[in-house]
Amino acid sequence: MNYSTSEAVIVLDSVNVEYGYHQALHQVSLCVLANSCVTIAGPNGAGKTTLLASILGLCQIRTGLVKVLGRDLRDSPKFIRKHTGYVPQNVGIDPQIPLLVWDVISFGRLAHSSLFHNFSKKDKETIEEAAELVGIRHLLNRPFGYLSAGEQRKVALARVLAQQPKLLLLDEPLANLDLPAQAMLLELIDKIKSEKELTILLVSHDLTLLPKSCNQIVLMKKGRVILSASKEVALREDVLSNLYDCPVKVVPYKQRGAIFVEGKS
């Protein structure tokens, strides 16, 4: 693959990842340019989460090349993790976990500190700024486990912002949230994108709920990237019907549009 990689933040070339006998990623190649907002979509088991994990080196890459922020993952995993904020899928935090919101946001600063480092005044200011940007400064001293799902996602975003990353990886940030919380989080992602000039890669199941700043969609199926294109090209009925193996109707509405499954009968 010959990408012009001068502005590329992520370059994946023929990446293969296996979990036992299951091939999670099959010859995946992808290029993400700086300051773009990319949505990865596809049916369950398409390899979306594994794709994010492979960018951070959180899974074993059998073959292929991964370059992030201009560095080869094999040579500079620490550098890449230091500058990449990652929000995994919500796994259901124990409400009893003895951590305050401040604690959770402060985790982001640990990417920049050595093992026995104490938080400096600058670290504390960065933590408070991140909370301010996300609008949760008033929650800093609240127990994390007792927040609502939407508030917990905001804290997760504040945590990665406190890390001051160049690249954000968000895995299903809107999953299991009600509609107002989803809309609020989408606005927040757009706000972060415009204020911080970050490159954002997010996994989403719902193609009707995309950030306005999203300028590239990557469609995945059975561990392969089947299309990487603009919203206009990717959100077409023939493309989505092929992706989900069922007739899909796209109804244009303002900038976003609604997507319906028509059913096979």
Partner: peptide, 22 residues
Amino acid sequence: VFLFKQIKVVLFNRQVANSLGI
């Protein structure tokens, strides 16, 4: 005492800890 902050991240979510290079 020496790994207090890092232990908290592991108790919170091991995947997050891994992504931070802990």
